[in-house]
Amino acid sequence: MSTDTSPSSADETGEEMADEGSDPAALQARIEALEAQVGEMEDDGQKKMTIIATQGSFDMAYPPLILASTAAAFDWDVVVFHTFWALDILHEENSKNLKLSAVGNPNMPIPNALAALPGMDALATRMMRSKIEENGTATIEELIDLSLDQGVDLQACQMTMELMDYDEDEFYDGVTTDVGAATALEHMADADIQLLV
């Protein structure tokens, strides 16, 4: 079998090694330097996850927060970029009043004609909240606290904050503001996992 099928990365190192010729000591030093470099690359194995959260209903607030707080327990570098309705998850007051929509939700055991009646969203939300309490599922606030405690970067999109007249003082302490799409993209470009919720 031919030996000149080496991958391109070996070609690059080959060029650098040409200067050192066949001096065994120089080659040895070069090998050690490369091994150290590979070692560093392996050590820098921290995974990154970026989640773009766009939904602010009670049910849709859970998936990004559960994934983010769990990923932080894996020691991953996690950013959740909240935009549009998802800003309500970070809003201290609104986050306590997130609602489930009974209309247009085929998983709800309520016909749309009934679900559209006044008070039905509140009723559906109350039912879900009591189920969550019964089941020992964490509340939105608990998951936000856990995420922030563990170093998850919860970001609030500046453009939608202004669109919705939100002030950063209304958000939980520790939420990152003054960030936009470019900040999110920069993290996404480097991330192992990118999710849009």
Partner: peptide
């Protein structure tokens, strides 16, 4: 329930 057992373990 999920994700508490893992997060609290960590």
């Amino acid at each position: 329930s999920c994700p508490m057992p893992v997060v609290k373990t960590k």
